[in-house]
Amino acid sequence: MSLMSLHNLRVMRDRRAVVNEVSLTMEAGSLTGLIGPNGAGKSTLMQAALGLIPAMGEITLAGHALPDLGREARARQVAYLPQERDIGWPISVELLVSLGRTPHRRGALGPADHTAITAALTEMDLLPFRHRPATDLSGGERARVLIARALAQEAPLLIADEPTAGLDPAHQIGLMETFQRLARAGRGVLVSLHDLSLAARFCDRLIVMQDGRAVADGPPDAVLTAPLLRAVYGIDAHIARDASGLIVTPKGRAT
């Protein structure tokens, strides 16, 4: 059974379909990259799949239609890292990560909650930071804290909207390695990305969006071709290959 499946998903905004008849499934163990130019509908697709905005079509989470699942049941199936990374108050890293337990508990944190929080802090290498105010951390550390929060939610599917935006190359790679590790440990991870090399080297599957439609879906080797990049992004790119995958470098606008 797939973790999530979207069938003919359509989102209208001002009478225009910003997501147009998109169908896809997310399987456990896959790190799937969602790529495409600005305005192609990547964020909208994610928000619609999560039930954050109204959409037409069918959304199924772990075999259940989305409308049949309560808010907390949904939250136990899929965790979401929004593009917005503001942290409202200078709460401690540990408290922030514990927010991921919100859909699992009624009262105080129980032993299972503490186990999940410690596991998430350990996975993201945050134990030394746990008493620091999350707002004091650097951008890269903060990104790790927010992922740890999503991990503490213990949902089999993680959806992350441009998690590498604004990070230095080392942190971008570190983050993608984390997602890869999570996928290998059995979760499904869907990330939207703008860096094509990052997408090519870490994701096992890429979905390309253009004008609200999914125009390509497959392994990076099959998807990232010169004609596609020209058609979707309007660029000419240098596509090379080394032992660990493709390297895609934009050369200029397509003429």
Binding site: R71, R74, A75, A79, Y80, P82, E84, D86, T102
Partner: peptide, 12 residues
């Protein structure tokens, strides 16, 4: 604390 979208996807 993490914004409206994050809170909603945590069941709030």
């Amino acid at each position: 604390t993490l914004g409206e979208d994050a809170a909603r996807t945590m069941g709030v």
